[in-house]
Amino acid sequence: MTARPVAAGLAIDNLSVVYDEFTAVDNVSIRVEPGQSFGIVGESGSGKSTILRAVCGLAPRTAGAVSLVAPPGDRTGALPAPGSREFRRRVQMVFQDPYGSLHPRQTIDRTLAEPLAIHRMGDAETRIERALDEVGLGKGFRFRYPHQLSGGQRQRVAIARALILEPQILLLDEPTSALDASVQAEVLNLLEEMRRRHGLTFVLVSHDLAVVTHMCERLMVMQRGRRVEELSADDLALSRVSDPYTQRLMVASRGFRRGGPEAA
């Protein structure tokens, strides 16, 4: 664990994803600096999850390019191309639904051993134990099946599975929206701690503005597969938004108030 490569960023240039006739993502570009945490916000069906899936090869890229960004001053050589084994090791994803993202017939041990076997990383025993330790699950959980765990514990396993390959970029697809409020905070704190400890770059997709302002330094608002605007978390906190759609999204995120939005 001595020679962990320093953080890498992620650049998405003019990405489009088209399914048959339907354009899920329309010409979107993002640049996430190494070590930064970037949020993508939008309503359901705005194409935000599709961007993540296109980055890691789960959705077809119709046009555009995805590449890693080396930290400034780093001249260690070529960065792996998307789809290569090394790219897959460096970019990992945590899924939205912890009830669907763990194989129901595999113990936690098997689930965590699988990425190590695929990437032929040795020393599986200690890596698995350390990964479980890091996400706050003790030895007692190692040989359990997913159905013996709670939602929050499952999401911790999913995070451990993503981190066990020592990635540089973690794609988070609504990592807390399937969890109840108290567990949400625990998982978000865990993610934040992992980011600090491992110098990770985050791309977080969420429909929850509060989560994104809490976790991310910069964010992009999306609607119907298009970029609406890009702003910093401070802008959002101080309501310095220009686009009417973002303003509406902000009002909606404050929730229902008696007397209408004017009273807020």
Binding site: R53, C56, Q92, M93, F95, Q96, D97, S101, H103, P115
Partner: peptide, 11 residues
């Protein structure tokens, strides 16, 4: 999703 998870790992 658990199949997507092993797919993106490069299995």
């Amino acid at each position: 999703d658990y199949i997507a998870a092993v797919q993106l790992m490069g299995a």
